[in-house]
Nucleic acid binder design. Structure first.
Lengths: 140, 140
DNA sequence: CTTGATCCTCCAGTCACTGGAGAATTTACG
DNA sequence: CGTAAATTCTCCAGTGACTGGAGGATCAAG
């Protein structure tokens, strides 16, 4: 199993070098063994763990959630109830974000559509932002 | 026109007191006049400005964008081309956020749906996170 | 052998707040 | 009128999740 330098690991996973060191510092990655000259070395297992972290971050999981997921992944005999609950909570969060963003999009779309390219005096962008009453939705 | 204490302004706008002071410190709000005993006083115009800021933040505008919008709002004779461009850019941003979140939602939904409530060994939540190949989309 | 790439640690900065310490003042109640 | 609670003040440090620079060591290629 070939050992990777931090740069190679970064290239392989798409995670920046300082971010890898940061993950180590907060305990998401184990302390890497070092060469004689103090450089970090990584094996395939760490690369996999890092991809796990990266993917979960991309999906919007917070580091604390990832920490829990990793603890679960490290213990495959455990019930995955917790992982499921975590994902469920996350799903609810995503759905609420989507609907808030949709309301927001409609509003900004409305602002843009109404902008007559005139003066600020008649510009809806300013108007809508200055007065909540112009909103299409009451969701925020 | 009744003058408001910072607490009253906070209550009226839903913006926390330290946040109001923060906005003043970064120049989004003007330096408030003070009472003899050094307490800030606000009038209706500032309340309106703060609602403008708050609303724009809720809509996801960054402080720098808000700064520009405010500068425009402060000068109603100006063309609103800039405000429109800002809003257009923001709209594109919102739309991309929405589609990424939708992809993400489908994926997390899939993870949750596949969780057999068994052991981590066979848990899709863990599996999907560990291996990108399980993803429904290639958008991330 | 030298040059440039890579790595190390430490520290400071980012964004948009948020909150605590400690002191002063104002308001409400009895 | 006295006191206790609420409000405000400033200053400073912390949040999350990185990001980047300084200054120095080491490695790989020509």
């Amino acid at each position: 199993m070939a050992m990777l330098s931090i740069g190679a690991l970064a290239a392989q996973t798409g995670v920046k070098i300082p971010t890898i060191r940061y993950y180590e510092s907060i305990g998401l990655l184990p302390e890497a063994p070092r060469t004689e000259s103090n450089r970090r070395l990584y094996d395939g297992a760490v690369a996999k763990r890092l991809r796990f972290i990266r993917h979960a971050r991309d999906l919007g999981f917070e580091v604390e959630a990832i920490r829990q997921l990793l603890a679960m992944a490290d213990d495959p005999a455990r019930s995955c109830h917790e992982a499921d609950a975590l994902a469920q909570a996350h799903l609810a969060d995503i759905e609420s974000k989507i609907s808030r963003l949709e309301a927001l999009r409609d509003e900004v779309r409305h602002m843009v559509a109404c902008c007559g390219q005139g003066q600020v005096r008649t510009c809806h962008v300013i108007e809508v932002l200055a007065d909540h009453a112009h909103c299409l939705h009451e969701t925020h």
